[in-house]
Nucleic acid binder design. Structure first.
Lengths: 383, 383
DNA sequence: CTCCATTAGTTCAAACCTTAAACTAATTGC
DNA sequence: GCAATTAGTTTAAGGTTTGAACTAATGGAG
């Protein structure tokens, strides 16, 4: 059962949040807010003017119009507050600060080899966050929280990293708790695929049901449904990498057999075919090389099979692919799209889009604060 | 983004719905409602008394207490309104009326062989609904709507039956629209697994994230997450039967290869092992018969593999099995539970329950109106 | 250049709902 | 019979949305 707004005050907060989130998606005028949110013009005026006088929102000019008064566009004040991000990457640990739009303001990083224990990681990240804040002469109180981005299975309710081998010093350490303790800040741990999907959800307005998949040495995934991140029993993200594509197939470190990750991750590909340069193979495939094409067909069969399962279970409109397979993606994309639309039951009702989007490291840093920012805008507070 | 309550009136409706849904789950007192819903005692009094004077709710006695005034239990008036249900079963088409608790008041049915065309089905069901209403001297205006239960993939937005072969005369017919036209009533088409999950969601209070699976000649499934039915892009239910358990495996009529349904439905079992009496095999397995045990191991591997994928993707707490495998289920259940907990990634965070629950035809009829009833209680109207 | 039609945004009293506080009602144990 | 306790009711107060009437801004026609 949904939890409804209860009293008159909570309505105000809800409407503030609705409006602020609309503005956050893209600059809009009061009139548009009134139309989209279903609130009266009077209410929109009251609330937006309050937001403006608090310094959270500002007017950024007018829209063109053919007749009548021009609409005054409202935008959030991106530097009204800021957020800190920690990125537990495969090769290094990064720290950054972003504004409320997720744009990186400043950054730092150190190679993963420099860390021997969880405490070292904790000390480095906490100190660096404070250093960056100082360097920009920001106020600690204006930091809305620290978002941690990590690949692989996590236990986000406990704030614990479970899986990726290069972070074994963090396994089963109360990482979030310790950072919260040392900083006194709001701390959130999230899967990097979930963070990516959050950001995409903000941008892709029309797309309401999709899965974001990141494939590199492992496979990460997250699902957006009805315009919201899908959360399971304990906030565990959709683990596409550990979907079983071959019952009784190759054994996976996770304990299961036949996991997708054992077939189509970059490492699995190397193990299966013996080559290391995926990009080179793709180039050859474009030139018609039969062996290279067979590699793409192999990927299509296994990845397609896993995606069909996901599409059928979640009833998805689209799949967005990130990571290494995004190199010259037209060929593989076309094969996957054909495979999925031919083989999924939902295709009988609606088509399924397959989109490739190059994962820039830049974006990955900005994404790290996506969950903290979302949290911030969802529980709107006075002043 | 969530759609929030907007104005002061909508708050009232929301609170009415919250309270009515609480009462509907199980009889409660005003004091409990106040505590659980987070509403003040005054509001609860106001709203419940309004509901009572409208005839939607009644007091049904008091609870025992050790000290202080006894709590007065409130229950919904089950026959305040009624709903009609149409069940498109494998062997017959059933029509029934249920009260607001989903209890069947009256029923009728005809063998599927009697129908040659969609129009015949439409005429029969519509006429029978009116006949049953007349027979019980009920008022047509008190019927909250007609729920249609159907196995297999549906397009619930268009209200069209897509799949099961025995209903081929209904394929791509605007079934819901025509029935809505002829009756002027609210009509809803739902997958039978979804309806079952709705009912279970109402009953199983603690369980918030589970999948209901019905296995007989096909496989149907539905997911409840965060205490609500999961809905994908177009309300398509989670199609566990068409999850791919063997990439490039057995061809399925749906177009895909290696669908779970091709391995562990009753028909697939018959095809694979050549036997027809599943119950007999189970009996033999309990006596230690090695061949019979190998059948259960086969089911465990394939069904388990599919369930692991679903559990990993949806992050589920539990799987509830219905249908033919519910015969003496302890043995198979134990094997499945062990398999799933050993092989799923989420098991690292929380255990996964496997529950067998015999599917009674009786219940299937009552379930047919579950969606209409849910809809009714979610959009509460005055008087 | 003025006037008008049109759209955007503002002001304010009215309507409505929840709620805290103070109340009554019912029940047990001493 | 009385105190203690819990359940349920009444009522005035407080806060929010809103419709209606308003002002503001803009383009085009005459």
């Amino acid at each position: 059962m949904k939890s409804y707004a209860k009293n008159v005050q909570s309505i105000k907060n809800d409407n503030r949040a609705t409006i602020l989130n609309l503005i956050r998606k893209a600059p809009v005028s009061r009139a548009e807010i009134s139309a989209v949110a279903g609130l009266s013009k009077s209410s929109v005026t009251m609330i937006t003017n309050a937001l403006i006088s608090e310094g959270q929102v500002r007017e950024i000019g007018t829209e063109e119009s053919t007749v009548g008064r021009k609409r005054i566009l409202l935008d959030i004040v991106a530097d009204y507050r800021f957020a800190a991000g920690i990125i537990l990457h495969r090769r290094d640990i990064k720290v950054c600060l972003t504004d409320l739009k997720g744009e990186v303001i400043t950054r730092a990083s150190t190679a993963i080899e420099n860390f021997r224990s969880a405490d070292e990681v904790i000390d480095y990240t906490v100190n660096t966050v404070f250093e960056l804040i100082d360097r920009l002469s920001l106020k600690k109180e204006d930091c809305i929280g620290i978002g941690i981005s990590c690949p692989g299975p996590l236990d986000i309710t406990r704030g614990v990293v479970l899986s990726p081998p290069h972070l074994d010093m963090l396994h089963n350490v109360a990482f979030c708790d310790k950072i919260r303790e040392k900083t006194g800040m709001n701390v959130s741990l999230e899967n990097n695929a979930v963070l990516l999907a959050m950001r995409e959800n903000l941008i892709r307005d029309k797309m309401q049901n999709f899965m974001s998949v990141i494939i590199s040495h492992g496979i990460g995934s997250a699902v957006v449904t009805a315009g919201e991140i899908y959360r399971g029993a304990l906030g565990f993200s959709g683990e596409l990498g550990h979907i079983s594509v071959v019952a009784d197939g190759l054994r996976c470190p996770c304990g299961n057999c036949g996991c997708l990750e054992r077939y189509v991750s970059l490492s699995a590909l190397k193990e299966h075919f013996g080559f290391t340069d995926y990009k080179q193979k793709v180039d050859m495939a474009y030139e018609g090389d039969e062996e290279a094409l067979s590699v793409l067909r192999y990927i299509t069969t296994y990845l397609g099979s896993g995606l069909v399962s996901a599409v059928n279970l979640f009833d998805l409109d689209a799949v967005i692919l990130h990571g290494d397979y995004s190199y010259r993606p037209e060929l593989l994309n076309g094969m996957l799209k054909k495979y999925i639309n031919k083989n999924s039951v939902v295709a009988a009702v609606h088509g399924v889009e397959v989109i490739s989007s190059p994962e820039r490291n830049d974006r990955a840093e900005g994404n790290s604060t996506a969950a903290i920012i979302e949290q911030y805008f969802d529980q709107i507070l006075e002043g």
